[in-house]
């Protein structure tokens, strides 16, 4: 088909609304209010090292917890019958379709000082515990919101593992544990790397979860950026510099993960 030109409008659109804005971020990050070149903004980001470290650390912890919870679940799902598999996928996706603000709000009501959990503990005469406005609460919120992003790619890759390959391993003397470690695990590596990316990227850049569950004391990179653009600290130049740093962090994470995943798989997973 000789219809190369039908893509032209989209190329123009991409140039205007995808590429130009990112170039603007780059420009803003390296200029001051008068439009002169400066690296002031970038060096200023250094003052927030503790926030950067906290963001990466909390996102990493949440990602690992997601992986630990999701891995056995995805495997169990992948060995079910087709209709049960469909039901399970639906059950996993259903909470994902609820707006994440509502999901996070739900945990607010559960974790707060006179919330449901503390009342429950009260029945046994313990507590109340400080659960809301802690780093633990932020991690919990991340795990809860992004767990399906880990389960689904793992499940997609595991469902492709032929039952006969697993039987072949058993036939050759591998115990269930050995089957898991020497066949299922290596074959699911692309799913693991996709899952890690899909959980880590939104987790490290979130600003709502930390604001709602972390209180004021647990600022993350996302909160910093938000403060520079819509907050009291209005400074789009610094905000752009922080955004740039965030993109670099994510690019690093993704290039590490890309070593393991197959490009083809990832494309399929995003859909």
């Amino acid at each position: 088909m000789k219809s190369k030109y039908s893509a032209l409008p989209y190329y123009v659109w991409m140039a205007l609304f995808t590429i130009a804005p990112l170039i603007l971020v780059l420009v803003f990050a390296f200029t001051d209010n008068n439009g002169a070149f400066t690296i002031e903004n970038i060096s200023q980001v250094g003052e927030y090292t503790n926030v950067l470290v906290r963001s990466v650390w909390l996102a990493a912890v949440a990602t690992v917890i997601c992986l630990l919870i999701a891995y056995p679940l995805a495997y169990i799902m992948s060995r079910l019958g087709p209709s049960k598999q469909r039901t399970m996928v639906m059950l996993i996706m259903l909470p994902m379709w609820m707006n994440f603000l509502l999901r996070t709000y739900a945990w607010m009501t559960i974790l707060e000082n006179n919330g449901l959990l503390n009342r429950f503990f009260g029945l046994f005469g313990v507590g109340p515990f400080d659960m809301i406005n802690t780093q633990g609460a932020v991690v919990l919120g991340m795990v809860y919101n992004y767990l399906p992003f880990m389960i689904l790619p793992l499940y997609t890759i595991m469902v492709k593992i032929d039952n006969r390959v697993i039987e072949a391993a058993q036939d050759l003397g591998a115990s269930p544990l050995k089957v898991a470690s020497s066949v299922v695990l290596p074959l699911s590596v692309p799913g693991i790397s996709t899952g890690i990316t899909m959980v880590f990227v939104p987790a490290v850049s979130t600003f709502i979860i930390s604001r709602m569950l972390g209180g004021g004391g647990n600022l993350l990179i996302g909160d910093l950026i938000d403060l520079q653009f819509l907050g009291n600290a209005y400074n789009p130049h610094l905000g752009s510099a922080i955004s740039l740093v965030l993109m670099v962090i994510i690019l690093l994470c993704m290039s590490v993960m890309n070593q393991f995943g197959e490009e083809e798989e990832r494309e399929g997973m995003l859909i």
Partner: peptide, 27 residues
């Protein structure tokens, strides 16, 4: 090349897409 550009908004953190568009509209 086109597909990589196309995937930019998908892999980019939402907050970065948000602020970059905001910058564009402010300009």
């Amino acid at each position: 090349l086109v597909m990589n550009l196309n995937n930019l908004p998908i892999v980019n953190p939402e907050i970065v897409t948000g602020v970059s568009l905001m910058l564009l509209f402010v300009m």
